[in-house]
Computed example of a mutant assay.
Amino acid sequence: MRKINVLVVDDSAFMRKLISDFLSENPEITVVATARNGEDGLKKVKELNPDVVTMDIEMPILNGLDALKQIMHEHPVPVIMLSSTTGSGAENTLTAIQYGAFDFIAKPSGAISLDLHKIKEELVEKVISASKVSKKHLINLETNRNTPIKQEERYSKIEPIETINLVSPKKENNKKKIICIGTSTGGPRALQKVLTTLPENIDAGILIVQHMPAGFTKSLANRLNSVCHISVKEATCGEIVQKGTAYIAPGGFHLKVKESGSNLMIQLDQTEAIYGHRPSVDVLFESLSEITEYKKVAVIMTGMGSDGKKGLIALKNTGKTAAIAESEETSIVFGMPKAAIATNLVDEIQTVDKIANTILKFL
């Protein structure tokens, strides 16, 4: 069996050794080389044509962001970024995703993480998953910064937005409505594609679980808010769900809802992670399955694993729910959508550019 060839790029010799050792312990992976900065990494990508690159963001000579941008432009290859959980680290990580990074991993304790073993399994899993990504998903992901969505936009767009013909939301006997979305690897780009094409006056609130660690979801919400017609924010415990607003579960917290009079109230908790995820799509969907007076639209997009499958079954068993799954054609990782489709409960399978239109049709 052909092994996965990995290039490890980090300015710390200790981190290069630790990451290489972790990866080499897996029989499916071979570390073909290491590099000490972005310039060295870019050179070795061209020379060795690795299957996957792991890259630190903060490095001398040529930092990880600039190196990533050049790699995606000159020699596209799946890149997993290693980032600190500081505010600037979160911003840089989301910029890396804009530039086409496959995914990222948060270092447990800063640039030199002596406790890197905490993310060993995650690192190996993401390298294996990245090695399977289609090269067509890596091409043309570089940011187009020249087409602002809002006059006050502060951030670059993650991906060019195509104009589509939207279906106007229709009232259905004044029945209350809620949209719930679950996604993971590749999710930030998919979310932007969907949320930017939803109208400001959409007749529903939107609840989102994006697999991300604490410290990153607020930055994601702020970026999305700057380019969407709807409002996008990180969810806070106790707030009432409003139409035309998308609420992203904070990293490290499960997102649930409960009825509060005629409204839905957001609840956040740190109960046990579900299959390693907190927030979990299953937890959100199962919470919504207990709300009977709402028409629901459930969406599962790109991501590893099967989170959302059990929750989708619960939604379908207990109320009126229309389910949408992202197609294999546009999914960066066709794990979560594939698991949802396997339940035979998905109403439509759509490419990411058609998901917004399909949501509005079901509303």
Rank of each mutant, 00 (worst) to 15 (best):
I178Q: 02
I179E: 00
C180S: 03
G182C: 04
T183E: 00
T183N: 06
T183F: 01
T183C: 09
S184M: 11
S184V: 03
S184L: 00
Q192M: 15
Q192P: 11
K193H: 08
K193Q: 15
V194C: 08
V194I: 15
T196Q: 14
L198A: 07
L198T: 08
L198G: 05
L198F: 06
P199D: 02
N201S: 10
I202R: 00
A204N: 09
A204V: 05
I206C: 02
I206K: 01
L207W: 11
I208Q: 13
V209R: 01
V209G: 01
Q210K: 15
Q210V: 15
H211M: 08
M212E: 13
M212V: 13
P213S: 11
P213L: 13
P213G: 15
P213R: 12
A214I: 12
F216L: 03
T217H: 01
K218N: 07
S219T: 13
A221Q: 05
N222G: 03
N222C: 03
R223A: 02
N225L: 10
N225V: 08
S226C: 09
S226A: 14
S226Y: 06
V227Q: 07
V227E: 09
C228G: 07
H229A: 15
H229W: 02
I230M: 02
S231L: 08
S231D: 11
S231H: 10
V232T: 05
V232C: 04
K233W: 00
K233M: 12
A235N: 06
A235H: 01
T236G: 09
G238C: 13
E239T: 13
I240A: 11
I240G: 04
I240R: 06
I240W: 06
I240N: 05
V241L: 14
Q242K: 14
K243D: 14
G244W: 06
G244T: 00
A246K: 00
Y247I: 09
Y247S: 09
A249G: 06
A249L: 06
P250A: 07
P250W: 11
P250M: 08
G251P: 05
G251L: 05
G251C: 05
G251F: 04
G251M: 05
G252A: 09
G252T: 08
F253I: 03
F253D: 04
F253E: 12
F253V: 02
H254P: 08
L255C: 07
L255H: 10
L255E: 06
K256I: 11
V257K: 02
V257R: 00
K258M: 08
K258F: 04
E259Y: 09
E259C: 10
E259N: 10
E259M: 13
S260Y: 14
N263C: 12
N263S: 14
N263D: 15
M265W: 03
I266A: 09
I266V: 13
Q267H: 10
L268G: 05
L268P: 05
D269L: 12
D269H: 07
D269T: 07
Q270V: 06
T271Q: 14
E272N: 08
E272W: 01
E272R: 10
A273V: 01
A273Q: 10
